[in-house]
Simulated scan of single mutants.
Amino acid sequence: MEHTRIGHKGLDGHGYIEREGSLGQVPPAFRPVVAAARARIAEAYGRRLHSAYLYGSLPRGTARPGESDIDLLVALQHEPDQDDLDAAEVLVQGLDQDFDVIDGGGILLFSKETLLSEQERYDLGWFLACLCTPLLGSDLAEHLPRYRPDTLLARETNGDLADVLPRWRERAAAAGSPEERRKLVRAVSRRLVRTGLTLVMPRWHGWTSDLRESAEVFGEYYPERATQMRAAAGTALTPTGDPDVLRAYLDDLGPWLAQEYAARIGTKARRTGHPGALVPGPDTA
């Protein structure tokens, strides 16, 4: 069955996913914080740094002042240690405190070896090559392949949702305030929408990072779940601390999506090791 083409499918003329975003697309209001991030990363890591990247709404040009966070990936010459994690925490907290234009942020820390490993070729490798904008250093994407929106990519990027759900439930049970739940809702809804998009990606033959477009694409293939996914896209952009919203994700949409993903796409290959870390800011789950 042919489905309506929604927007630009994010592919080049050969069917490969085009790299999204650029520093030139960063909205003017966010350029000072991006410049500060570049300078502070270089100062914090020095010779330990291989390269750094910006991803998310800022390089896509869709960031909203006071609502969007800053998302960074740092590639180190070695596996991250505690000093690296501490430096990242200080860095992201400093950016959040010094720039009202952002609402928190986070830094992904990995070694160059991990990012280029065969094990991460269709997960972190794809993420860097297609979703990250170079900010500092030599671009590791030059050592990675081109990627198509196929079943292999879908499986290796989001085929672990069933493993993630128990951790979300633990965090939901521990959340003691609406603000803590809001942060978790933001993270969970983003992940569910992106998982919904990659579930149908091999059939749609395209890619988009736009959450609302992702929900619409998903809804063409699963109309019975379209309303839920549109709502998830909305809460990803404007999160709520309502416990009923979180409960619906963890008890209904999430388990159904994990089951359907396993049946149609398969499950992600088990990792022998996954060195690296996400250092969250005040509003990054």
Rank of each mutant, 00 (worst) to 15 (best):
A215Q: 04
A35F: 10
L108C: 06
E18P: 01
P145F: 09
T198E: 15
P255N: 11
G104T: 10
L58R: 04
A236W: 05
Y16R: 04
R31G: 14
L237I: 07
P32V: 13
L108N: 08
A231T: 15
P65N: 12
T235M: 13
R186H: 12
S214V: 00
F127L: 14
E113D: 11
D163T: 09
S138A: 15
R270H: 11
P243E: 08
S68L: 08
D252Y: 10
L192E: 13
V101G: 15
L124E: 02
P27H: 09
G66Q: 03
T208W: 02
S111R: 07
S177N: 06
A39V: 07
R230K: 08
R181N: 02
S22V: 03
P166E: 08
L246F: 06
Y53N: 00
R203Q: 09
A63L: 10
G281R: 11
P28D: 09
L58E: 12
E216G: 03
P275F: 07
A88W: 00
H14Y: 15
E79Y: 05
G46E: 06
D84L: 06
L91C: 00
A232Y: 15
T195I: 10
L278V: 14
R155Y: 09
G13E: 12
E170C: 14
P65C: 07
L116C: 09
K9C: 13
S117K: 06
T272D: 09
E113K: 04
L95E: 01
V185H: 04
H205P: 04
V217G: 02
R171K: 09
A285Q: 14
A39P: 01
L199W: 02
A187Y: 03
P223C: 05
V200G: 08
R271M: 12
V217I: 12
L136A: 12
R40Q: 10
P28N: 06
A175Y: 09
E220Y: 00
A236Y: 01
T4Y: 06
D84H: 00
P149L: 09
W126L: 13
D251I: 12
L116Q: 06
D12H: 00
Q259W: 13
A87L: 06
P145H: 07
G176C: 09
V279Q: 11
L91D: 03
A129W: 01
L58T: 03
L192V: 07
A39T: 05
L135A: 12
A175N: 12
G13A: 15
A52V: 00
Y122E: 10
R155P: 01
A37N: 04
L109D: 07
D71G: 06
C130K: 13
L165R: 03
E213P: 09
E220C: 05
D12W: 02
F127R: 05
R146L: 08
A75F: 07
